[in-house]
Design a protein around this nucleic acid. Structure first.
Length: 907
RNA sequence: GCGCGGUUAGCUCAGCGGUAGAGCGCCUCUCUUACACAGAGGAUGUCACAGGUUCAAAUCCUGUACCGCGCACCA
């Protein structure tokens, strides 16, 4: 005897292993079939997968499996991402726990550790993806890594091509510097957070001893690097001072007052201290006016180039001291409370220092233009479409991309320098490693994948590589074609590129998606995918972002362990609609688990009824067709086939729109509401008769098809149950993924309408029973009458449905039946239903029921009458609508009349 | 400041021009031989607010409020 409750774990372990061993998910460039390709957004090898990954992967898996079953050569390309700064940070933390730093190890040893970590963590991630049921082949030769040899070749090719086109350059610019990570970041890697702070008003006296002026700042410590004060040229308060000199407090420097139209007269005091080295806006002012760039904060976030007392102090400490000293010197006019946003590193949340530094950049304007066009023309189409605008707007405002990172883990910049020729431009650390390069100092770049044999200028062989690595997103940007071996012209590349759809969260739309589109167009001549399915973020149940510090992280694997993978997939998918964020709670998984159990129990029910060794009994399409033609099918059979077809049609329509959530719930509703609650209940008695084989055949046909239909969404339970029924369904395919997705093609016959009539009657009788507290086990006598003879015939013909599902006995179905005394009544369509209840009847209760019903119908009638009296409605509304209202009115009138007569008889 | 999304049953959300829906929760009855992770029945909403368009508005338009998220500026 099968257990009553489904146990997912052994099933999942079994199938995930079999699927991998059988190489079920591998794809070959089969030119006879249309490809459907998704490249997996490669997870960073920073640790375990989180809920967001689970959602992302479950969505992709559903698409891939569905497309595979509808006949496409579906391929989901797996891989992992080295994850640059994020992963290096993980390693640094581990080293810290050992009491060491990466410098203790040195670059080479550190990288060895990183590769060992990749082997562990990368493997673990693939394992987790397998557990989620992902149709990814995780075999060694199929899994890519953003830093493996082929991807390294792609990175070099891209860098070199952009360099040759003059799109990559090295320059001194204002960049975002994370003092904790010790590296430059691109503009989109900075996050902003509102913080309470102060606005300090500082008086700068004039150099000649006159009054001077007052500036307002949120960063007093940067005054040590001021090289001017700017005012608006139209500002009458300061016009006289323009061109004059000010004495910079706390220093012995004198700085000019300059006029710049960008200065907002209304903000603060209307006078701006200008620190070109440490503020992007000031940098621009400095550039316009040829101001000196005086760096007072170094790469470690410590003060430098300033009076001794501040030197070497942190920015925070210096700020405090500077404010105190200003106060002591009576330069501080006031302190205002002020809220403003501070820049934070997206990887470590520490403050970002804007500083001027020499870095590698990619010129973006020319690359962005065709990408904007692709989005606007919908060559690349977004789901939901609302992402198109932010996407193009971001590209329109794009700035050059800082691609160099001062970390060790990543693709080393493929640029070499001759020690002899470039001495002035190179700086070495104490350990003898090249630590910084300056083109301003004369370093001459040689772009090469491997170390060049000799310097083309002096013939010397002493060449060193640029110490920096590339932004991790540089290699990610190439992913949709690097995975297929680009720049080699491989068969895979030719067959699979461009890919079909990219599934990703909106948080990396600019970091990743935009850059893939640009690189695809630049290097491959066309966008890397035609659709971008943008999903939301999985949040906690209060809508808060899950984070370790908040302690609200839900681990997907512990959830699948507790509720089963299929349950979690179902829950995520049904909530994923519309690309919005998903508030996720453990309780939500219960619904999914219950559904899985329901499916399992259908199978269990079927198994219990199957004759042993019967061979194939499921009906195929041909047999069904024949039965239909010969009229051998019962109304319920016709009905369930119609509902089944309609559900499948809905799935098809939804999937075409990437509306996976609604596709799943269409099958859910069909299986649970139609198939289980009505059809199986009606089929039960027939399983005791000579109709058994035919009924079982139909059940197997539909249930087998439903399992196929559900398989893309809930792969494990469907595979397990389908395989258990194979001997009876006659399937010759080893796996559901090899089956053809069932087709709908609902015909719109009369079965549904007829069945609705019966269901209405049944529901009414059930309601009466419940309201008059008739024990479920007890049968009741029931009379059904109507003036509609053909409708009565329908009931008469299917009397057994009613007696079975409403537990009636001695039913009388005939026209003109009088309401028996001491009976309760209900209306359904054209039917009057009477249930005699000697002794049990509560007259007042029945009267109240009928009164309530009468009131409802009265409202309905009034509504219809109101509409029909309205001349505008008659003349302007669609004719079908007017007809409908006329019918509704007639129906309400008719029912009211019947109720009235029932009430009269009620004594 | 600009933009995007949200505001519907206690909770989470679907519906997006023709009589308010689902799941969970709640109440009543039932361990009826697939399933109590179930079945049957029930209660519950001026669809944020104000205008407008329309014969008809939760649904379209405009504005307001509140919530969330981007982007920019914040000296």
């Amino acid at each position: 005897m099968l257990p009553k409750v489904y146990d997912p774990l052994p099933v999942e372990d079994k199938w995930s292993e079999i699927w991998q061993n059988e190489k079920l998910f591998i794809s070959s460039a089969d030119r006879a079939r249309k490809p459907f390709v998704i490249v997996l957004p490669p997870p960073n090898i920073t640790g375990a997968l989180h809920m967001g990954h689970a959602l992302n992967n479950v969505l992709q898996d559903s698409l891939v499996r569905y497309q595979r079953m509808t006949g496409k050569e579906a391929y989901w390309v797996p891989g992992t991402d080295h994850g640059g700064i994020a992963t290096q940070n993980v390693m640094e933390k581990m080293l810290k726990a050992e009491g060491r730093t990466k410098e203790d190890l040195g670059r080479e040893k550190f990288l060895e550790r990183m590769w060992a970590w990749y082997a562990d963590c990368g493997g673990a991630i693939l394992n987790q993806l397998r557990k989620l049921g992902c149709a990814l082949d995780t075999g060694k030769d199929n899994v890519r890594f953003t830093m493996d040899a082929k991807r390294a070749a792609a990175v070099f090719e891209a860098f070199s091509a952009l360099w040759k086109k003059g799109l990559i350059y090295r320059g001194e610019r204002m960049i975002n510097w994370c003092t904790r990570c010790g590296t430059a970041l691109s503009d989109i890697e900075v996050e902003y957070e509102e913080e309470k702070s102060k606005l300090w008003h500082i008086h700068y006296p004039a150099a000649d001893g006159s009054k001077g002026l007052t500036v307002a700042t949120t960063r007093p410590e940067t005054m040590l690097g001021d090289t001017a004060v700017a005012v608006n040229p139209e500002d009458d308060r300061y016009k006289a001072l323009i061109g004059g000199k000010l004495k910079l407090p706390l220093t012995d420097r004198v700085i000019p007052v300059i006029a710049d139209a960008e200065v907002d007269k209304a903000f603060g005091t209307g006078a701006v201290k200008v620190t070109p080295a440490h503020d992007p806006a000031d940098f621009e002012i400095g550039r316009r006016h040829g101001l000196e760039i005086l760096r007072v904060i170094d790469f470690a976030g410590k003060m430098t180039n300033c009076p001794d007392k501040y030197r070497g102090k942190s920015v925070q400490a210096a700020r405090k001291e500077v404010v105190e000293d200003l106060k002591a010197g009576e330069f501080l006019e006031k302190e205002e409370h002020y809220r403003h946003s501070v820049n934070k590193c997206y990887r470590c949340s520490q403050h970002i220092e804007p500083l001027v530094s020499e870095q590698w950049f990619v010129k973006m304007k020319d690359l962005a233009a065709p990408a904007i066009k692709a989005a606007e023309s919908e060559e690349v189409k977004f789901y939901p479409a609302s992402w198109k605008k932010p996407f193009t707007e971001w590209l329109n405002k794009i700035q050059d991309w800082c691609i160099s990172r001062q970390i060790w883990w990543g693709h080393r910049i493929p640029v070499w320098y001759c020690k002899t020729c470039s001495t002035a431009g190179l700086r070495f650390s104490a350990a003898g490693e090249l630590s910084r390069v300056s083109f301003k100092g004369g370093a001459k770049p040689l772009v090469s994948f491997t170390k060049p044999g000799k310097c083309p200028a002096c013939g010397g062989a002493d060449l060193v590589q640029d110490p920096d690595v590339l932004d991790t997103w540089f290699s990610s940007a190439l992913w949709p074609f690097s995975v297929f071996g680009w720049p080699e012209k491989t068969g895979e590349l030719d067959y699979y590129y461009p890919t079909s759809v990219l599934v990703t969260g909106y948080e990396i739309l600019y970091l990743w998606v935009a850059r893939m589109v640009m690189s695809g167009i630049e290097h491959m001549g066309g966008p890397p995918f035609s659709y971008v399915y943008v999903h939301g973020i999985v949040r906690d149940k209060h809508g808060k972002k899950m984070s370790k510090s908040l302690g609200n992280v839900i681990d997907p694997l512990s959830m699948t362990g507790k509720y089963g993978t299929d349950a979690m997939r179902f829950t995520l998918l049904s909530q994923a609609a519309g690309g919005r964020d998903i508030p996720f709670s453990e309780e939500a998984l219960i619904g999914g688990r219950n559904f899985v159990n329901k499916i399992y129990n259908v199978s269990r029910f079927i198994m219990m009824n199957l004759p042993e060794n019967s061979g194939v009994i499921a009906l195929d399409e041909k047999q069904l067709g024949a039965l239909k033609v010969s009229g051998a099918l019962d109304l319920a059979d016709e009905w369930i086939l119609e509902r089944y077809a309609r559900a499948l049609d809905e799935v098809k329509a939804c999937m075409a729109d990437y509306d996976i959530g609604n596709a799943v719930s269409a099958v859910y509703r069909f299986l649970w509401d139609d198939f289980c609650d009505w059809y199986l209940e009606l089929a039960k008695p027939r399983l005791e008769t000579t109709d058994k084989a035919r009924t079982l055949g139909l059940i197997l046909h539909i249930f087998g098809g439903t399992l196929k239909a559900l398989h893309p969404f809930m792969p494990y339970v469907t595979e397990e149950l389908f395989s258990g029924l194979k001997a009876y369904t006659g399937s010759d395919k080893p796996f559901l993924l090899k089956e053809t997705y069932p087709e709908g093609g609902a015909s719109g016959g009369t079965a549904d309408a007829d069945m609705r009539k019966l269901m209405g009657v049944i529901t009414q009788i059930r309601t009466l029973r419940a309201q008059f507290e008739i024990p479920p086990a007890r049968t009741v006598k029931t009379l059904i009458t109507s003036s509609d003879k053909s409708a009565l015939e329908l009931l008469k013909k299917h009397e057994s449905y009613i007696s079975r599902l409403a537990r009636t006995a001695d039913m009388e179905i005939a026209p003109g039946l009088a309401k028996p005394a001491r009976s309760v009544s209900a209306l359904s369509d054209a039917f009057n239903i009477y249930v005699p209840l000697e002794g049990m009847i509560d007259l007042e209760k029945e009267k109240a029921r009928i009164a309530k019903e009468t009131e409802k119908l009265g409202c309905e009638l009034a509504l219809c009458e109101g509409k029909l009296k309205n001349g505008d409605f008659i003349s302007r509304a669609a004719k079908t609508e007017v007809d409908r209202v006329v019918l509704r009115k007639a129906d309400a009138e008719n029912k009211l009349k019947r109720l009235e007569s029932i009430l009269k008889d009620l004594t």
